[in-house]
Amino acid sequence: MDYSAQSVTALLRGPLITTPQGWVVIFAAIVYFTLAVTFGAFDLTPPLVKSPSVAITICIFWPFIVFLQFVKSGLPSFRPSILSAVITGLYAAAPFIYVGWKLWE
């Protein structure tokens, strides 16, 4: 099905919940929401971040970036793909990979 001419609701009901790469997007959103709540509730500052509010902002907006990558890489048909799910997972984990890389240096 060509989702480029469909509504966003069709995209959310279709590929987002039925493809492996969609599951990665949902899982990443849950993880980042949980982290945002944790950073806000306990006033925690993760490594390499200046304040909890910066960490919360990253946790709120990064799932949207992952979703946009999911849409960009999946158009027009959003065929299920394990390789695409891995790539989406790497996009989702990019902030953690960056922090790990900077701490490793």
Rank of each mutant, 00 (worst) to 15 (best):
W23N: 03
V49A: 13
A85S: 08
P76R: 12
I87W: 07
V54Y: 05
F70Q: 08
S77N: 15
V24Q: 03
S73F: 03
A93K: 06
S77V: 14
L68S: 13
V24K: 02
P46C: 05
G40R: 06
P63C: 03
V71A: 05
P46L: 06
W62D: 03
L75S: 13
V24I: 05
F78N: 05
W62Q: 00
Q6K: 15
G14Q: 01
G22H: 01
P76L: 10
L68H: 09
L90F: 04
I58R: 11
T34L: 14
T38E: 13
F70H: 11
Y32Q: 12
A85L: 09
Y91I: 03
T38Y: 15
P80H: 04
S4T: 04
T9C: 12
F70K: 08
L83H: 04
G22C: 08
P63N: 00
A93M: 09
A55Q: 08
T88C: 09
I60E: 08
P95D: 06
L75P: 07
V86A: 05
P47Y: 08
S53I: 12
L103A: 04
P95Y: 06
T18L: 10
V25T: 00
I56K: 05
P20K: 00
I60S: 08
F42W: 11
A29W: 02
A36L: 14
I30Q: 10
G74T: 03
V31Q: 07
L48A: 01
S84A: 13
Q69H: 15
I26D: 03
L90R: 05
P95H: 04
A5Q: 14
S51E: 11
I60D: 06
P20T: 02
W23R: 00
L35M: 14
L12F: 09
F42I: 08
T57N: 14
D43I: 06
F39I: 10
E105M: 10
V71K: 07
V31L: 13
G100K: 14
L12M: 12
P52I: 09
P80T: 04
G100F: 15
S51T: 11
F67L: 01
W104L: 06
L75A: 13
Q21R: 02
W23M: 04
T88M: 09
A28W: 02
V49M: 15
V54N: 07
A55C: 08
E105P: 04
A41L: 11
P47A: 07
G14C: 02
L75F: 10
I65L: 13
L48S: 02
L12V: 09
L44A: 12
F61D: 00
P80I: 03
F96D: 09
P46R: 05
A92F: 02
A28P: 03
G100R: 13
A5S: 13
A28S: 05
F33P: 07
I82W: 09
V54A: 08
I26V: 05
